[in-house]
């Protein structure tokens, strides 16, 4: 049985002032934003918000092909899975992939393949998983944009970024980037994917009625819209490293501050006292090997003070931080610690 509130269905797509219902011009894309590195388990990932679309893409690989018989000895294979969440559309969708999902997975795969160097990965596969969390027209285009971002985030070499955007026709006017309603009531729909390096088209479908003139105009709009999205893609990819840089700087400053504080004060935490007791015990019992042991326990203590001060922070952050410390601060701080420790043991 259908759900209670049907989707409104009236064919009007333009306001009286000639603009579209959401206030856009005919050649204006919907608001677009994206972010990379959103799924920590994946090699690369991206989220794209394009109009009302909310799309996650994750890349795993290059990795072993499973089942083995799909592997090609001379080149890698690309597998794309386009899946919609059950709650992403007006009427609940069955979770199992249907014919539409499979077709779109295939056309997206064939849009991405030309920009990858698959011959560099014999016997392996690269998998791109796309999950539509909210659909609002033009999901295959937005999915390709997301997939391209995720692949770049995964560090997989590409000839160019690719951008998906659709043009179409509603009420005898050519329009760019159709929303859900325009898609449903419009006369034509041209989803396309643009390879940004040479402005060639790597995905093209067409569905409806259009003259050749209108077709030409659609492509003009598509190239214009793609340029806008491409800029945001690049910003997102660079932005990730910018935030990493800023965070790393902040953390290293905090760490240096905390080290100064702890070296000025007496050890207060329980761990510190336990460790210092241990070193005293060692000193009492085994005098000849004292120096070695004390040095060892110093290392331990240092590790533990780090943990003590940064309990609240996440493990991953700790790791990156520790790397930074190894390169920068260990040399600086070691002598400080030594003098402090030395004073106590004596």
């Amino acid at each position: 049985m259908p759900v209670l509130v049907p989707e409104p269905h009236d064919p009007v797509c333009f306001r009286k002032d000639g603009k579209r219902l959401d206030g856009r011009d005919v050649d204006e894309p919907r608001p677009f934003s994206c972010e990379v590195g959103v799924i920590k388990n994946a090699q690369g990932s991206a989220v794209v918000r394009h109009g009302g679309n909310l799309i996650y893409a994750a890349v795993y690989g290059p990795r072993e092909v499973h089942p083995r018989h799909l592997a090609k000895p001379d080149r890698g294979i690309l597998r794309v899975y386009y899946r919609m969440a059950t709650f992403s559309v007006h009427d609940r969708k069955s979770p199992a992939p249907n014919r539409r999902d499979n077709e779109i997975s295939k056309v997206i795969r064939e849009a991405i393949e030309p920009v990858l160097f698959l011959e560099a990965y014999p016997d392996s596969q690269i998998e791109v998983f796309i999950q539509i969390m909210a659909a609002d027209g033009g999901t295959r285009c937005a999915s390709t944009t997301a997939a391209s971002l995720a692949l770049a985030d995964a560090g997989i070499p590409m000839r160019s970024m690719i951008v998906g955007i659709a043009a179409g026709k509603a009420q005898d006017k050519v329009i760019l980037d159709l929303g859900d309603k325009e898609d449903k009531v419009g006369q034509a729909d041209v989803p396309a994917v643009v390879v940004m390096k040479d402005k060639s088209i790597s995905l093209l479908q067409f569905d409806g009625e259009m003259s050749l003139e209108e077709m030409k105009l659609s492509f003009k709009y598509i190239l214009k819209g793609a340029e806008v999205i491409y800029k945001k893609q690049l910003e997102a990819l660079k932005g990730k490293y910018e935030t990493i840089r800023v965070n790393a700087k902040k953390e290293s400053e905090e760490y240096q501050k905390s080290v100064k504080e702890t070296s000025q004060k007496k050890p207060q935490s329980l761990l510190d006292t336990i460790v210092s007791k241990k070193t005293e015990e060692i000193k009492d019992t085994k005098k000849p090997k004292e120096d070695e042991k004390v040095q060892k326990s110093k290392k331990e203590q240092k590790k533990e003070t780090k943990k003590g001060t940064k309990k609240s922070k996440k493990v991953t952050k700790k790791k990156t931080e520790e790397k930074a410390q190894k390169t920068n601060e260990t040399i600086e701080n070691a002598p400080q610690k030594d003098s402090e420790k030395g004073g106590k043991t004596k």
């Binding site: 799924i39 388990n41 994946a42 994750a58 990795r63 899975y81 899946r83 979770p95 998983f129 999950q131």
Partner: peptide, 10 residues
């Protein structure tokens, strides 16, 4: 219902 989508983990 729950979906262990392959996005989440290798």
């Amino acid at each position: 219902m729950s979906e262990y989508v392959p996005i989440a983990s290798p």
